[in-house]
Amino acid sequence: MGRQVWNNQNRQAGAGGTVAAQRAIKRGLAIGRARAHTILVALGLSYSIAALSGAAHATSARLDFGVSTLSFPSADPDSVPVIRAVENPVAVDVTINGPHSTISQLTVQAAGDLISGPDQIAIDHVGWQGQGEGFVPGPARLSKDEPRLVGQWVGKGAKQGSLRFGMENSWDYAAGVYSQTVVYTLVAY
């Protein structure tokens, strides 16, 4: 587009100009073409280098959970002050491919509080303890407002750990069946 505009401007100048002016225009065109050619070649080269560099340092991150659902059964708050998830311990596999300097972080954030119709249980009543290299031992609580760190690592390879979830029990909870989604995000860079 820029090149077309540049040429149109020169054509307008040349329409009423002298021979000298026409030569000057031709020189300008030649210089413009050379400059554009140089930029195009440089761009092509740089993207090729970048592509090769990216291929050499290709980073990939894979996150696998042993389950897709956690269940907290009903229990007497006096005898069971903290309800353990039926699925405990939940296996977590993190696989990082990339340079040795790759930094990876696993975080979790809830989409909201536990909901049962009009009733709610604050999501920070659910917490976990981590086990395994790089996993935050905790205890930590879920949050709907900000991501919470679950684990972090440097370098590539497979990291295996487990999470044990618990929910604080209370007489204040209204009877119901509650549900909510939490999202675990693994980022490697």
Partner: peptide
């Protein structure tokens, strides 16, 4: 261009959702 392309090439992400269910009986 090199920096931009390189940064894009190095970052990687993966996500998994977990559904939490809790039952409170009367």
């Amino acid at each position: 261009a090199l920096l931009t392309a390189s940064a894009e090439g190095w970052a990687a992400t993966d996500q998994q959702s977990l559904t939490i269910n809790a039952t409170v009986s009367a």
